[in-house]
Amino acid sequence: MSRRLRYIGNTSGDDGCPTLYEDVDTGEVVVQGDVVTDPDEMAQFRNIKPGEGFVTVPRALLADFAPRDVDREPVLISYESTVAAAATRVGTPRTAAARRRVADA
């Protein structure tokens, strides 16, 4: 049985892409966008399953149109937990500089 999709919105006017749709039965979001095909970009993705694809969309599309669950309570993480997690994270020199700024604060 095919999905029953409801148009949510887009940020591209009449061009039609990128666009968000919602499956009216499951609440899942379907994204229409430009397909990522560059091998260097594809090499950065993790755990790709057969049949999966990737599309790019502007952040504004998600911010403006992505459905928000009203019944979902956000999980708040304490400052202490965040600092502890950051201290154990291996990252780029940029994240290392950010950790030093937090530690010096």
Rank of each mutant, 00 (worst) to 15 (best):
T95W: 02
M42P: 12
S12I: 02
R4K: 14
E52M: 13
G13W: 04
A96P: 03
V29E: 00
D69I: 08
R6S: 14
Y79S: 15
G9M: 08
V35R: 15
G9Q: 11
S78R: 10
A105L: 14
V57T: 11
E52L: 04
L5I: 12
D64L: 08
P74K: 05
L61I: 03
I8W: 05
E28V: 11
D34L: 08
T92M: 01
D71G: 14
T56N: 06
E41W: 07
G33R: 07
V30F: 06
E22F: 00
R59M: 09
V70D: 04
L76I: 11
P58N: 03
Y79T: 13
A86R: 13
E28N: 13
R94C: 06
E80P: 02
V30C: 07
R46V: 15
D34F: 05
M1I: 01
E52P: 07
F54I: 13
D40V: 12
A96G: 10
G9A: 10
R99I: 09
G13L: 09
V55A: 02
A87E: 09
L20R: 11
D25M: 07
T56Y: 01
A84H: 07
E41H: 12
L61Q: 06
F54N: 10
T95L: 09
D25I: 07
V24G: 04
D38S: 14
D14N: 09
V30T: 12
R4M: 05
